[in-house]
Structures are given as C-alpha cells and as structure tokens.
C-alpha cells in the first residue's frame, strides 16, 4: 500500500469521527455494496432505484427531459422564493416592486432566472411528453402515470399563466384578460356560454338569471368583473402556494409510479 499523505490521513480521521458516521452510513461508493447504500440511505437519491436498464440510461432514449423538467421546477421554487421577499401582491405595490427588483436588488437576475426558467419548463414538459409518446412508454403498465403526467402538464401551464399576471404591467394585465375572457363563454357557468341563460330562479316577479356577469366562473376566477387588484391576490396565492403544492405532490406520485411500474420503460 502506498504511504498516505497528510490529506489522506485527514480524510481517514474525518470519516471515522462520530459526527461523520452519524450522517453517512456507508463508505465511499466505490464498491457495489456501498453504491447501493449510497442510493438507499440518501433522502434525495432514494427516489432512484438501485439498478436500472442500461437502455433507459441513454440520453438518446429519455433526452433527460423528465429530469430537466424536475430540475427547472426546483430552480423555479428557489428563485420564486427569493422573489417573494421583494414582491407584494397588491395593485399599489406590485409594479414598483418589480421595477425595484430590476434596478436595485443585488444579484439582480432572479427575475430573469424565474421568467426564462418558466418558459423553459413549459417547453421541456412538452418535449418530455413527446418523448414518452414516441417511445410508447404510456402503454401498460404505465397508463396511469401518463395520466398523472397530463395533469402535471396542465398545472405547469396554469402555474406559468398565473405568474404572468404578477408583474402587473400592460403585457401581464392584457394577456391575462385575453386568456380569461374565454371563461365567460364556458357552457352553463359563464354568462355568455351556451345554456347559461337557461339557468334561472323562477320567482313571483318573473325569472331571475343565476349566471350573470357578477356571478359566473370568470367572476370567481378574477374576483371581479375585470382583471384588477383582487385578481392579483388570487393569482398570487394560486401561483405561490396552491399550484406548487399540488405539483409537488403529483411529481412525488409520478416518480413513485415510475418505479412501481418497473422503472424507465424498455422493450419487453
């Protein structure tokens, strides 16, 4: 055996301390046993199986797209959290807070990282779906996980859409106005939707319409008849709390199912 240098001795000493051993329950992952333990005993890594098909490892098979989507979700969570320190979701402050973020906050690329990351996640989730489709990976036994994926796709778009409003500039306000205008035409529950005029309360003085401008789904979505201050708060709550929680839960389910369904798909 080669004589150990000082660094080697410091290393040996460190990994034998009680503190180190309380954290790391195995030696350096250079043997099959330790490599398995590295995956098993780490909270993050244990999302993985210990072994997998070599074909599923290939970048040309998965394009890493699911992983990229997950990474972007984490990146957006972190940068979004930092943005929340500076942003107040009210009509008075929202725009000025963004101006301040742009001009005065140190390390001022958090907004950029968040916005471009969000665009990238929308694209990567589409591409992930495309690769899953083209490899026929939704076929039994993975039908359910494909469905979970579709819901994740919709939630990704909703996350991006609710975030779009928050800068409260012309771009934000009108894009959301255009996007939510369609809600007023929802069949039965939007005041301009087919069938809505048929929903009435018969009273002695004549029929009262139930679904009108100030009671339809769009009103509920916006908190008013127009995109305004209540809309900022609603979208903010959904964007920062509601949707991320659901996505986090569904991603956990998605990953769990990838493993329960036999790992990354491959030819039979």
């Amino acid at each position: 055996m080669a004589k150990k240098g000082d660094l080697g001795r410091i290393w040996d000493y460190t990994v034998n301390t009680q503190v180190w051993r309380s954290i790391m329950r195995h030696g350096y992952p250079s043997t099959p046993r330790n490599r398995a333990l590295a995956i098993l005993s780490n909270l993050v890594l244990h999302l993985h199986p210990i072994r997998m098909r070599k074909s599923g490892l290939r970048v040309r098979y998965t394009w890493c797209m699911g992983g990229i989507t997950f990474f972007l979700f984490l990146e957006l969570t972190i940068t979004g959290l930092l943005l929340m320190f500076y942003y107040r979701p009210t009509a008075e402050y929202a725009y000025n807070d963004i101006v301040f973020l742009r001009s005065d906050v140190p390390l001022g690329i958090m907004r950029e990282l968040h916005r471009w990351g969000a665009h990238a996640m929308v694209i990567s989730v589409w591409l992930h779906m495309m690769r899953v489709f083209l490899t026929g990976a939704y076929k039994p036994p993975r039908e359910f996980n494909w469905g979970v994926g579709v819901v994740l796709l919709v939630l990704t778009l909703l996350l991006s859409f609710t975030g779009y409003l928050l800068p409260w500039d012309q771009l934000a306000m009108w894009a959301v106005t255009v996007g939510t205008n369609m809600a007023r035409a929802t069949p039965f529950v939007g005041h301009e939707g087919p069938g809505a005029s048929a929903i009435v309360l018969p009273t002695e003085g004549g029929a009262i319409s139930v679904i009108h401008q100030a009671s339809d789904v769009r009103f509920g979505l916006l908190g008013g008849r127009f995109v305004g201050a209540p809309t900022i708060l609603r979208f903010y709550v959904l964007h920062c709390v509601g949707f991320p929680l659901i996505v986090a839960f569904l991603v956990a389910l998605h990953f769990w199912r990838v493993r329960k369904d036999g790992g990354i798909s491959g030819p039979l």
Binding site: P29, R35, L45, I50, R51, S55, P267
Partner: peptide, 13 residues
C-alpha cells in the same frame, strides 16, 4: 434499445 434492455446497471455512479 433491446440490446441493452436486460443489462441492469447500478444507478450510482
């Protein structure tokens, strides 16, 4: 893909 499908490798590394 079938050529490597039965090749089970360790996730680490």
């Amino acid at each position: 893909e079938a050529e490597e499908a039965n090749d089970r490798i360790l996730v680490w590394p």
